[in-house]
Amino acid sequence: MLLSLVIYLCCGAVVGVIAGLLGVGGGAVIVPILVTIFPAQGVPPQYVQQLALGTSLASIMFTSISSARAHHARGAVRWDIFRHIVPGILLGTFFGGLLATHMPTMFLKVFFICFLFAISAQMLSNYRPPATRNMPGFLGTAGMGGFIGLISSFVGIGGGSLSVPFMTYCNVPIHTAVGTSAAIGFPIAVAGTLGYIVGGWDRPGLPPGTLGFVHLWALFGIAAASCLTAPLGVRLSHSLPTTRLKRAFAFFLIFVGLKMLWNLL
């Protein structure tokens, strides 16, 4: 248990930097680590992916608060966008998380691997849609929030890999998009966590220390460290060439995706 807690703390430290730097919740790092650790802790194979996804979303609640506060202090959060997108985020993520708890583990693993490869390709190409329009109205923004929330719940992320390109497409400056995405990660995490708790309630065979599909020890370790390091990531995002960092992170995600695919096959 002590070794696992140390691993959770290290994972959280890395996730916090990534969250502040790139505006993502860090689920692409958390989920593969938890999928590797949980079987050794007696988690039944049919619950490993769901428990990793639920725990990842729960930890993002704390990471996003720390990251969003740091971005807000620099004036890099568009709260008007936040207010419009949150209703869709809450509905999409909650029902997506609830649905995911009843999906086959194999489907969720394949979906996660495909998602890793997709965001890696986007980061390597640095492709952004031409910024030729403004943010849509309330219904359009809320509808996009529902889509972002649904996908985020299936892969245990804070939605930054989807919300940042969406906002930059709508002429929102990149640093503001990253800061706003960090704030959006909180309602995604809250709604997704509730979905995984409700969907995993009273499932037979889950190990002690779980609340539905949320592992409380892993949550504690990841959240404690990530809250401390997220402000560091924010400072780095305003001073370092994020394009190079994104490419390095993309290669890391490709490696993770290939390893998960190999284990799957």
Rank of each mutant, 00 (worst) to 15 (best):
residue 4 S to P: 05
residue 7 I to M: 08
residue 8 Y to R: 11
residue 9 L to N: 08
residue 9 L to D: 02
residue 12 G to M: 11
residue 13 A to H: 08
residue 16 G to P: 08
residue 16 G to S: 04
residue 19 A to V: 07
residue 22 L to V: 03
residue 23 G to F: 01
residue 24 V to D: 02
residue 26 G to M: 05
residue 29 V to G: 00
residue 31 V to R: 01
residue 32 P to R: 03
residue 33 I to L: 10
residue 37 I to F: 08
residue 37 I to Y: 04
residue 40 A to P: 06
residue 40 A to F: 12
residue 42 G to S: 01
residue 46 Q to K: 11
residue 47 Y to S: 13
residue 48 V to S: 07
residue 50 Q to A: 09
residue 52 A to R: 03
residue 52 A to W: 05
residue 59 S to K: 06
residue 63 T to R: 03
residue 64 S to I: 07
residue 66 S to F: 03
residue 67 S to G: 01
residue 68 A to D: 01
residue 70 A to K: 06
residue 70 A to M: 06
residue 72 H to K: 14
residue 73 A to L: 15
residue 73 A to K: 15
residue 75 G to I: 12
residue 76 A to G: 06
residue 79 W to E: 11
residue 82 F to V: 14
residue 83 R to L: 14
residue 84 H to K: 12
residue 85 I to C: 06
residue 88 G to F: 12
residue 89 I to C: 14
residue 90 L to A: 14
residue 90 L to Y: 10
residue 91 L to D: 06
residue 94 F to S: 05
residue 96 G to P: 01
residue 97 G to Y: 08
residue 98 L to C: 02
residue 98 L to G: 04
residue 104 P to Q: 00
residue 106 M to Q: 14
residue 107 F to E: 01
residue 107 F to W: 08
residue 107 F to C: 04
residue 107 F to T: 05
residue 109 K to T: 08
residue 110 V to F: 05
residue 111 F to K: 00
residue 112 F to A: 00
residue 114 C to M: 10
residue 116 L to V: 02
residue 119 I to N: 04
residue 123 M to C: 09
residue 125 S to E: 01
residue 126 N to E: 10
residue 126 N to M: 04
residue 129 P to I: 14
residue 129 P to E: 15
residue 130 P to Y: 10
residue 130 P to T: 09
residue 131 A to L: 09
residue 139 L to M: 12
residue 140 G to L: 08
residue 141 T to C: 07
residue 142 A to L: 09
residue 143 G to H: 07
residue 144 M to Y: 15
residue 150 L to W: 06
residue 152 S to E: 06
residue 153 S to E: 04
residue 155 V to Q: 02
residue 157 I to V: 13
residue 159 G to A: 12
residue 164 V to S: 03
residue 164 V to Y: 04
residue 165 P to Y: 01
residue 171 N to Q: 14
residue 173 P to I: 07
residue 175 H to W: 07
residue 175 H to Y: 02
residue 177 A to W: 04
residue 178 V to L: 07
residue 179 G to H: 03
residue 180 T to K: 03
residue 182 A to E: 01
residue 193 T to N: 04
residue 193 T to M: 10
residue 201 W to A: 13
residue 203 R to Y: 07
residue 205 G to R: 00
residue 206 L to V: 05
residue 208 P to F: 03
residue 209 G to V: 01
residue 210 T to W: 03
residue 210 T to P: 07
residue 211 L to Y: 06
residue 212 G to T: 05
residue 213 F to N: 00
residue 215 H to V: 11
residue 217 W to G: 09
residue 218 A to Q: 04
residue 219 L to Y: 05
residue 220 F to Q: 09
residue 221 G to K: 13
residue 224 A to N: 13
residue 224 A to H: 05
residue 226 S to M: 11
residue 227 C to G: 14
residue 229 T to M: 15
residue 230 A to I: 14
residue 232 L to F: 11
residue 232 L to A: 12
residue 237 S to V: 02
residue 238 H to P: 08
residue 239 S to C: 13
residue 245 L to R: 12
residue 247 R to C: 00
residue 251 F to V: 14
residue 251 F to H: 11
residue 253 L to D: 01
residue 259 K to C: 08
residue 261 L to R: 00
residue 263 N to H: 09
residue 263 N to L: 07
residue 264 L to P: 01
